[in-house]
Design a protein around this nucleic acid. Sequence first.
DNA 1: CGGCCCATTGAATTGCCTCAACGCTCGTGG
DNA 2: CCACGAGCGTTGAGGCAATTCAATGGGCCG
Lengths: 269, 269
Amino acid sequence: MPDPLTRRLGRLLELDTAERQAIAALVGARVRHLDAGEEILADGALPLCGGIVLDGWMIRSKLLPDGRRPITAILVPGDVLDLDCTMLWAADHAVSACTSVAVAEIGRDAAFLFSQQFPRLGRALQWEAVVALSIQREWTVNVGQRTAFERFAHVFCELLLRLRAAGLAPGDRFDLPMTQADLGDAMGVSTVHANRILQELRHCGLIHLEGRLLTIPNYARLARAGLFDPAYLHLEGWRPDCGRTPDAARVRSEAVPGVEARRADSIRA
Amino acid sequence: MPDPLTRRLGRLLELDTAERQAIAALVGARVRHLDAGEEILADGALPLCGGIVLDGWMIRSKLLPDGRRPITAILVPGDVLDLDCTMLWAADHAVSACTSVAVAEIGRDAAFLFSQQFPRLGRALQWEAVVALSIQREWTVNVGQRTAFERFAHVFCELLLRLRAAGLAPGDRFDLPMTQADLGDAMGVSTVHANRILQELRHCGLIHLEGRLLTIPNYARLARAGLFDPAYLHLEGWRPDCGRTPDAARVRSEAVPGVEARRADSIRA
DNA sequence: CGGCCCATTGAATTGCCTCAACGCTCGTGG
DNA sequence: CCACGAGCGTTGAGGCAATTCAATGGGCCG
């Protein structure tokens, strides 16, 4: 079983031996283990390095002045932990372990040189950032526009697909290590309401939840209930030649004003 | 008056003549004008290029199956329009003009070469992406955790600071070209409720809104009302040596396991 | 055993929604 | 020139979703 980053990037492109070794070196250099609840980055702290989640779940959260602690993202193995955050003077949110986790810590310069020496992999990491932003946008929509019932259905669909892609949801079943309070914080509802929604989902037969084991008996039905459209996860991968380096000559010819602009008008989905 | 991108990147670093010219060439090559309401990128369409907002306001929105159209971001002059989106097969949201706008269209390869030839500027663009993600997270928190009243106060504070940085809010007063329906879509409330909230903000003396002109008489009070902490905008800029290229020798010495990890534990805000 | 975390339930309250209607200011066309 | 409709802002009334407060029970650990 390859490490989660190899698996993740391997979905985007065929990795050669040197690239596999580089990835292994990147994630193997400095692995840190955290217990559940421990923070790898505190809100307001000076970020010293980025990382990759190797094992376990993590969450991004913000501490509000009134004590609430909204969760803005859920991170599963293979997810990238802001390689760019070392540009910041102070982290704008906390990243903490949801379960006990293993994280590969990656310093600013290590990440830079990695992308420098393996440009295709650098672009692959950039791709991961693009998808992460897309997911964040969808979460904004989720908490802003959907009912609590839809929100939960939606996020379970998302987690299923993301974990499936990581090979961690065999049989449409996965370990859900978050408490109902956590889920409430993530979905923007109170703990009490999170509980009621989960019961409703169970009674509708949309999920089975026994202990921490979540089973999704009928993904299509759950997706319908959550108005879930997986397009934003971009599971189909990137466009061809994202891994190549453009050559200057061709670029100059493309930069002629109007050429792409005209095409832009004609292509609509 | 420099173009918005020069102004924006000039806040991060001292630009030399070559860099100024490169920026001017980048944003000047292909400028597109759109009328209010026009889309530069349709949800689901094949993205052909990224861009920079030169003049006017734009919005990111998603079209939901039931006809709602949540707004996930507001873009003002100087904001970057996903230079990486050309990696995607299909856009996961629409980008459209809120007012009549001027946008600099930037193709994939032009952006690549720009960053290649001017690495400091490339990192500056990366910085903009980091901040954009941070803002998106804050919006997730905003719609998920705060009351409608707080949300509006919060977003007005954000807009004030972002526009101030762009030199577009003299006297804590700026043009707010969005309709109440738009604001509702952005804040996750109905149009009717958006109206009532705006009235409440006016009656509290937190804002003056006459026509499209929004005045913020007392920023500190509005910030308190919106539980607004500007940290997530990272207006203080990036950390030193974000513009430099790391050299491999020093990096290897830093990669020794444990060194940074130990420091990480000791630094907390 | 006691204490803590977590899940669960009930009851009262409220923020926000929907539906519906009205007035204002445009731009347009008869 | 006025009539008309469209778009936007505004207001009221009724209803529902989700909240807060409060209390209970089960499982786990010290």
